[in-house]
């Protein structure tokens, strides 16, 4: 008589229970093209992993959600040694436009959307966008000036309250 050893079924653990209740708060404080993406990419990745995500746009980060600017963020070589180009070059007229154009092309080539479309994907995935009240007051902007999927203009304290228990990223 022979016996066959049956392997138990291997079923992946998608961690549904573990990720339930996991929250991520991302504070976007920079408005350069290259500094906008890390927050958006991490937000998108976290949403895809079943994590609740709230983004707070403050100071220069306000550009990411300001209608008139969100599609026109720029990248400059100035003060960025990681381009490994002579710093003097970055100050030449037109260099910021050239560098921005180049970076946009590289971003597009890896299949990553531009900022407005990325925010659309993030909110379609369940992400929440919040605007900083102090920044709105300083720049004399109201909800009508902001990307339509921004849920509200709230104070820093409101954001901290909303994201109780969240892991936090400051960018």
């Amino acid at each position: 008589m022979s016996t066959t050893q049956e392997e138990p079924a291997i079923i992946p653990d998608f961690g549904d229970a573990a990720s339930e209740g996991r929250k991520l708060a991302i504070i976007c404080s920079k408005g350069n093209l290259d500094m906008a993406y890390p927050g958006l990419i991490l937000a998108n990745a976290a949403l895809g992993e079943g994590v609740q995500v709230d983004l707070f746009f403050t100071f220069w980060g306000f550009d990411i959600i300001t209608k008139s600017r969100m599609g026109d963020l720029k990248f400059t070589m100035l003060g960025n040694t990681a381009t490994h180009m002579p710093q003097g070059l970055g100050g030449l007229p037109g260099m910021t436009a050239v560098a921005t154009h180049q970076m946009r092309r590289q971003i597009r080539e890896v299949g990553v959307p531009d900022v407005p479309e990325f925010l659309e994907q993030i909110t379609d995935s369940g992400g929440h966008l919040w605007a900083c009240k102090m920044s709105a007051d300083m720049m004399h902007l109201d909800l009508g000036d902001l990307y339509e999927r921004v849920e509200g203009i709230i104070s820093a304290a409101d954001f901290i309250e909303k994201t109780e228990g969240a892991q936090l990223l400051f960018i």
């Binding site: 992946p12 998608f14 992993e49 079943g50 379609d124 995935s125």
Partner: peptide
């Protein structure tokens, strides 16, 4: 994307692949 999250809730990309 919204539909993908509805069809494969939680971790849609990984669930779809599985």
């Amino acid at each position: 994307v919204r539909e993908l999250f509805t069809l494969f809730p939680g971790k849609p990309a990984k669930k779809m692949a599985y």
